[in-house]
């Protein structure tokens, strides 16, 4: 594991803390659910583990991980989009 990753991690944490400091409360749910979809990025890891052809139990775990991470990604983005489609102004 590269120590550079730790560097990236620390910077990304600080960026995340700065990004959403002032969010109107009506957006809390979509923001949470949208962020939740992003956490499904673990699907990338799952794909790599499932596809490396190691075989056996590790591959089975990888495939199950792909399925669950994809539920998180697809479900998360769709549900967030559905919610945001409902938010509209009275003038609009």
């Amino acid at each position: 594991m590269s120590i550079l990753l730790v560097f990236v991690f620390v910077l990304a944490i600080f960026l995340g803390l700065e990004l959403i400091t002032k969010v109107p409360s009506q957006l809390h749910t979509p923001l949470m659910s949208g962020a939740n979809a992003i956490s499904g990025v673990t699907v990338v890891g799952a794909i790599l583990v499932a596809g490396e052809g190691f075989g056996g139990f590790a591959t089975v775990l990888g495939i199950v991980a792909v399925a669950f991470a994809t539920i998180n990604v697809v479900g998360g983005y769709l549900v967030t989009d559905r919610m945001l489609a409902m938010f509209k102004s009275g003038k609009g």
Partner: peptide, 8 residues
């Protein structure tokens, strides 16, 4: 991506 979500 993980740490962005963790922080937010």
């Amino acid at each position: 991506a993980g740490s962005l979500v963790g922080a937010s």
